[in-house]
């Protein structure tokens, strides 16, 4: 059974329909990517899944349970979270406090302690700067913090919205490397990216969004090889 299942989703902003009858699923243990140009509806889809936007039609199931209509904070408690587009770290809180916020729903103190260690090991920069106000971090560090913060909730399903946006090529590589590591530890990943090349390379499966519709789907390798994709997203 799929861990996440989206069925016939429609989303409107006023009279404008941003998402048109989208259906897809993410199975446990997979990395699935939604690729598409700006305005294709990727972020809208992500925000609908986590309950920040309310779809006008369709259903979203997580672990067999219907989750649309449930408030976001309760959806997060079910075991999924999101690294939002633009990182959206809490710039007035310190790095440490941001990570504490990531563990907001957790009661297991020992586990949280251990995860702090793991995250500081994975991102030594965050440990160096743990008492620094997060707004003073560089863009790359902020992305690391956003990812660390999300993983602090120990999600079963981690969704990342454009994690490579605005980063230098070196940092982009690092971000994809970290996503792979989260995945190896057993986290199911749903990724939204404009960087089709890199994201398809690590994906089990992918869906291509265009003007609010899914126009193509397949395995990461299939789509990487597809002529259409090459033309539209991979620069020839």
């Amino acid at each position: 059974m799929a861990l996440l299942e989206v069925k016939n989703l429609d989303v409107h902003y006023g009279v404008i329909q941003a998402i048109k009858d989208i259906s897809f699923e993410v199975n446990e243990g997979e990395i699935v990517t939604l690729i598409g140009a700006n305005g294709a509806g990727k972020t809208t889809t992500m925000q609908s899944i986590i309950g920040l936007i309310h779809p006008t039609r369709g259903e979203i199931y997580y672990d067999g349970q219907k989750i649309n209509g449930i408030p976001s904070h309760k959806i997060v408690k079910l075991g999924m979270t999101q690294v939002p587009e633009g990182r959206r770290i809490f710039s007035e809180l310190t790095v440490y406090e941001n990570l504490v916020m990531g563990a907001y729903t957790r009661k297991d103190k020992d586990g949280v302690e251990k995860d702090f260690k793991d995250i500081y090991e994975l991102f030594p920069r965050l440990e160096e700067r743990k008492n620094q106000v997060a707004g003073t971090l560089s863009g790359g560090e902020q992305q690391m913090l956003a990812m660390g913060r999300a993983i602090m909730s120990r999600p079963k399903l981690l969704m990342l919205d454009e994690p490579s946006m605005g980063l230098s090529p070196l940092l982009v590589d690092q971000v994809f490397d970290i996503i792979k590591r989260f995945h190896e530890k057993g986290t199911t990943i749903l990724l939204v990216e404009q960087n089709a090349n890199k994201s398809l390379a690590i994906s089990d499966r992918a869906y291509v969004l265009e003007n609010g519709r899914i126009v193509l789907s397949g395995t990461g390798a299939e789509l990487l090889a597809s002529e259409e994709i090459k033309k539209a997203y991979l620069g020839g």
Binding site: V76, R88, F90, S153
Partner: peptide
């Protein structure tokens, strides 16, 4: 600071 991001942390 950011209501949406706070909700993503599981904050009610």
């Amino acid at each position: 600071e950011d209501r949406g991001a706070a909700q993503l942390m599981g904050i009610n």
